[in-house]
Amino acid sequence: MTAVLQTRGLCKRFGALTVADNIDFTLEAGARHALIGPNGAGKTTFVNLLTGRLSPSAGTVVLGGEDVTRLSQQERIRRGLGRTFQINSLFRGLSVVDNVSLAVAERRGVSGRLFRPASQLSEVRDEAMELLRSLGMADDAQVVIANLAYGKQRLVEIAITLAMKPRVLLLDEPAAGVPSLETHRILDVLDALPAEIGILIIEHDMDLVFRFAKRITILVNGATLLEGTPEEIAADPRVREVYLGERHE
């Protein structure tokens, strides 16, 4: 197994508050890895450190064997790092297919063209439609995001990121806010993702985590408490304490 994404001694402090505390983490190629932990544990912050949206107070981020700690978000994206947002971050005034097309165009490197009409680049729209079809969303392609059901908005959130064809995918609570009856659709989509993509998923829905992940890391107060297979995690008494809100002595 080779590591596609790795952190060494990653720290992030907001003033006196330490939100990432010396995190050593490894994501293997093609991984199905879950990061869980109570609210405020620092999971979203960790994702932001990985993508470069935040810069760490100390430590390094290694992507595909290369130290990317000093690289911008854009440079990390070009190296195959994609992420979704815990809170929908969509182009609300645009249709579903236009949302996805923007990401397709960026990846294809055609988004800066000044004069040719965008609609003449039919390959961009075709690819966006193809992706939506594979996610079972073809019927909603023309719907403007603001008029789309919340659960479907979560799928668009994923679709935009998939359009970037990432090698490493960071999913920040993809099922957050989705009624439990609909989470199976999200899970179906996740299950169908190409096996070679390394996936790190943050999720509160334990059913989803245990069905999807082959490996689980638990983050508490910005530090990794435990890592192991779902069986190991389920059997560990400390997990229960964390999730019952008790402090571990």
Partner: peptide
């Protein structure tokens, strides 16, 4: 012409959601 170009589309993207445009790798 500009507004209907890919460049124009990305301007609208920036107007709609600055953060996400950065996150999909737009300069």
């Amino acid at each position: 012409r500009l507004i209907y170009s890919p460049f124009g589309a990305s301007l609208v993207g920036i107007r709609e959601n600055h953060v996400r445009m950065v996150a999909i790798g737009s300069p």
